[in-house]
Write a protein that binds this DNA or RNA. Structure first.
Length: 268
DNA sequence: ATGGCCGGTGGAACCGGA
């Protein structure tokens, strides 16, 4: 079972590039982030005609996540539990019914910038950065809850976290950024420490492999990238992992997103 | 992480992104 994550930066803008990648990569399941569309405006028929079941959790203008699957989807959950007042569409999960059932959770973790700093140099945990860290704590609670089921779980998406220095071409410029602050990376490690496996690093030790290149300042041409799109696996899913790759070439295609797909192959 | 962008909204600038 091939499962991918792809921040498409707007479904309308990617209406040609996304089907082209699907046809070439042929994933069984894809978690999409930043669909930037309401559910009623998502072009579901286009993907249904390619053989995918479509589940969306969108909102107007910003954010929005979706799952496309060639296998049936059951037990769909929309929205990250733990805060009824949170109206941002950043979480969707569903059980993929195949030879082995896999619960797939697609997430678009908050960016968290801008960060305000106190006189002592420490980041102020409030505003957008406070929302990011609170969201990560809520996600940790959800992950811990799902882990009690002992099913194969895949948590994939745009985490907006650069885990380590080797995951950025120029780590020094990110020192005061919400994507790389110690508190952000610690919260990411706390997720892993629940017993999850970060699929890409489990299979690719080399530094300098990225999933995002900014549209500005020739970042792609200079390979000035960061690795922020991740797939985290429960022990039962990690046991099935046979491959994990970044589809880097997609960034050089026509009208690309600023992110590229990352995918895993599970023996499931 | 910028000299240089892009997408959505709404119908011009402006917000949000990473």
């Amino acid at each position: 079972m091939k499962i991918a994550t792809f921040n498409i930066n707007g479904i309308k803008a990617r209406i040609e590039a996304l089907p082209a990648w699907l046809a070439q990569a042929n994933p069984d399941v894809v978690c999409l982030q930043e669909i930037k569309s309401q559910d009623k405006d998502f072009p579901r028929e286009l993907f249904e005609s390619m053989g995918y079941a479509v589940e969306t959790h969108g909102q107007k203008s910003f954010n929005g996540v979706a799952i496309l699957s060639k296998l049936p989807l059951e037990d769909v959950v929309r929205g990250l539990p733990g805060d009824e007042a949170d109206e941002q569409a950043r979480w969707i999960e569903a059980k993929v019914v195949g030879k082995t059932a896999v619960r797939v959770c697609g997430l678009y973790l908050p960016n968290g910038n801008p960060v305000e700093f106190a006189a002592d140099g420490q980041p102020v945990i409030a505003g957008k950065y406070g929302y990011k860290l609170a969201w990560m704590a809520r996600m940790r609670a959800r992950v811990a809850d799902l882990l009690t089921s002992e099913e194969a779980l895949v948590f994939c998406g745009d985490y907006n976290v650069i885990p380590q220095a080797e995951d950025a071409a120029k780590p020094e410029v990110w020192a005061r950024d919400a994507l790389y602050l110690p508190q952000s990376r610690e919260a990411f490690r706390r997720l892993l420490n629940l017993g999850l496996t970060e699929a890409f690093r489990a299979r690719n030790p080399a530094p300098g492999q990225y999933t995002f290149w900014d549209y500005q300042a020739g970042a792609w041409e200079r390979n000035n990238g960061i690795r922020i799109d991740h797939l985290l696996l429960s022990p039962q899913a990690a046991d099935l992992l046979t491959d994990c790759q970044i589809d880097k070439a997609v960034r050089g295609g026509d009208k690309p997103s600023d992110h590229v797909p990352v995918w895993i192959e599970l023996d499931a």
